[in-house]
Simulated scan of single mutants.
Amino acid sequence: MALPEQLLLSDLLRRRVRCDQGLDHGAGLQVWMHPPVHRVLGWVSKPSAFGARRLVWRLNQLRGLTDLEVLVQGEPAETEQDVVERLPNLIEAAVLDRRQQPIGSLADAAIELRTGRIRHYLVSRSDPRLPGSSRWRLSLDRLVDQQPGQVFTALESLDDLPLARASVRQEFLRRSRRWRDQMQEAGSRVEERLEGWLEDPPWQEESPSPMAGEAPDEGWDDWPESWDPSEPPSRPSAPDGRRQRRSAQPPNDEDPWF
């Protein structure tokens, strides 16, 4: 069974250990690491719910992974819980910013299975044991110093780190910020169009005007060149060219209005 090139420590610890003899040696309990060089040497399992007996497995004993189990080969080293608690460990160590104020804790680590080298840590703002919380990727070059239970960085806040996994709340806030930015951008475009529309409204388009010396409309072509407003209007010209004027006699002598 081919192993992945990289594995999260939490994925290794949450599986139960089964050896090549088919025996179940319990679930993973704790990582065995060398903090000065950020390297994982193995992990510890708890074979039974009762008792202080613990089993230590080397990372090179790993032979395969299933959905629920870790397949190993060889015999483990037996130890006690008191010894396991004295093993150096950076997981769940507090992450301090440049002012040496805690901004989170180391919740997980990405392990290179072939060498055991830690590629980067995952930082949690809240309790690392809470499922579904956000994780920020902390590379090794961002570390300034380290002590038992503490990791020093030059960060201003966790926002300086790339987000590796967003919780439901963090994803909602991120989408809300994106929607707000999109609405602001759309509002700015509408405002720019409105300003341009007010500066150059469509009803101010130039139209031909006789007062400006332009040619009159076609409807004014038959207007007489000289016109006396004191003269009564005349009827249209007859076909023979004579102009028919209105007679002073009403056309109907019986018209009651005359």
Rank of each mutant, 00 (worst) to 15 (best):
A107N: 09
R98C: 10
P47V: 13
I103A: 04
D24W: 06
V37Y: 09
P47A: 10
A93I: 10
P88G: 04
L140Q: 09
R135D: 11
R125A: 14
Q101C: 07
L87K: 00
H120G: 04
R119K: 08
D97A: 11
L23V: 15
R137C: 12
D108C: 08
L113Q: 01
D145E: 13
R53T: 11
R98M: 09
L71N: 03
L90S: 02
L96D: 03
P148G: 08
H34K: 06
L23W: 11
V144C: 06
V31T: 11
Y121R: 04
I91N: 03
A49M: 11
R39F: 02
Q81E: 14
V44C: 14
G116P: 06
Q147L: 13
G104E: 04
K46I: 08
P47N: 12
L130E: 15
Q100L: 14
S134E: 13
L55V: 08
L59H: 02
L65P: 01
Q101D: 02
L90D: 05
L29W: 14
A93K: 02
V144N: 08
A93E: 03
L140T: 06
A107I: 09
W32C: 05
P148K: 03
G42S: 03
E75H: 09
L140M: 12
A49S: 10
P131R: 10
G26T: 13
L143Y: 10
V123A: 08
Q81K: 08
R39V: 06
A110V: 11
L96A: 12
R142F: 14
A110R: 13
V70N: 05
